[in-house]
């Protein structure tokens, strides 16, 4: 089988009877009769193996390959150029990190006109434009995860007592696009003073009962009546929460008449006593919550996109 036709013109020009050929062996016998078949590989297989060796040699010259101490051979191609987000121009050897930076640069360039269009469009018009809205929301989703989610939680779920829920329809500082934008930009400090020392426990319990009345959950009308007098009188609650208890978005005081509890976890309390106790704690100790300002950290466009995202979480007004 190993005769080479090119070198042997006599072979096979007219076929002769080909008897099945005896299988070749490596020629060595172990234990008297144990032999090994020789099934030779095709020669082109060998050549393709050599070709991979040559390929490797060429690769080593052009691409990063060999580690040398803490460094490595960088290859002779010093051709990858990119500009970082900070505007730094870099020329470097071929490497996937640099290619990634190139991709990011291209993505930033592709986003630029869309961002500019967002800048120049009013909230109302963005809401009507499905493409712009989609772009703003997908950009803001990442911004939200990077900047807001640590406190306000994924999807704006918030934590009762600590960070307001952004997906409901109640807004301490207002739920319009402009109001949300302003809240992100400037930040806010919401302060509920503690009444420890100014009101005694019985008085605070009465106020708490009245607060339950405001959202229709009271079980003790007499106590509530006493609470109302304190709420409107010596407690001075109405100066922030207003006479009706609806709160004031100018100072971020909570609306006590709706079913949403942002600090005292009344919805989770089963008994009337537990509900009152939850409110009691807040009135007694007070609470101060701070929304930081973002204008130094985020661009106006980023804040605009975040305002759209938060508005669209489900409760925007």
């Amino acid at each position: 089988m190993s005769r080479r036709l090119m070198n042997n013109p006599q072979v096979n020009i007219m076929s002769t009877d080909k008897k099945p050929q005896s299988t070749q062996t490596t020629g060595h016998a172990w234990d008297g009769d144990l032999q090994e078949f020789n099934n030779p590989l095709p020669r082109w297989w060998l050549w393709s193996f050599y070709a991979t060796v040559v390929f490797a040699l060429i690769y080593w010259v052009f691409y990063p390959a060999w580690p040398i101490g803490k460094s490595y051979t960088k290859g002779v191609m010093n051709t990858v150029e990119y500009t970082t987000a900070q505007g730094k121009h870099v020329v470097t050897h071929w490497n996937t990190r640099a290619l990634y930076e190139q991709d990011m640069q291209a993505a930033r360039a592709a986003q630029a006109p869309l961002l500019k269009a967002l800048d120049q469009t009013s909230y109302a018009d963005i809401l009507k434009d499905a493409e712009k809205l989609k772009f703003a929301k997908s950009m803001a989703k990442v911004l939200y995860a990077d900047n807001c989610q640590a406190c306000h939680q994924a999807g704006g779920a918030g934590i009762i007592g600590k960070y307001p829920n952004l997906a409901d329809d109640d807004w301490l500082w207002g739920g319009s696009f402009e109001q949300i934008q302003n809240t992100i930009k400037e930040g806010h400090t919401g302060m509920m003073p503690g009444f420890k020392g100014r009101l005694d426990d019985a008085q605070i319990d009465a106020v708490a009962e009245y607060v339950l009345t405001l959202s229709g959950q009271s079980s003790d009308a007499k106590m509530s009546q006493r609470g109302r007098q304190i709420f409107e009188g010596e407690g001075g609650c109405i100066s922030c929460h207003t006479q009706k208890g609806t709160g004031n978005i100018a100072m971020g005081s909570a609306n006590l008449t709706d079913k949403i509890w942002t600090i005292a976890d009344v919805s989770a309390a089963k008994t009337a006593l537990a509900k009152r106790a939850a409110i009691h704690q807040v009135v007694l100790n007070g609470v101060t919550r701070k929304m930081p300002t973002w204008k130094e950290r985020l661009s106006p466009t980023e804040i605009k996109m975040l305002a759209i995202y938060v508005h669209e979480l489900g409760g925007g007004k």
């Binding site: 089988m1 190993s2 005769r3 080479r4 036709l5 090119m6 005896s22 070749q24 062996t25 490596t26 020629g27 020789n38 030779p40 590989l41 095709p42 020669r43 082109w44 297989w45 060998l46």
Partner: peptide, 14 residues
């Protein structure tokens, strides 16, 4: 015994 020392063989053209 038919012995070959070459582990690689060229293709026989057809």
């Amino acid at each position: 015994m038919n012995v070959t020392s070459d582990p690689y063989v060229p293709r026989e053209p057809i």
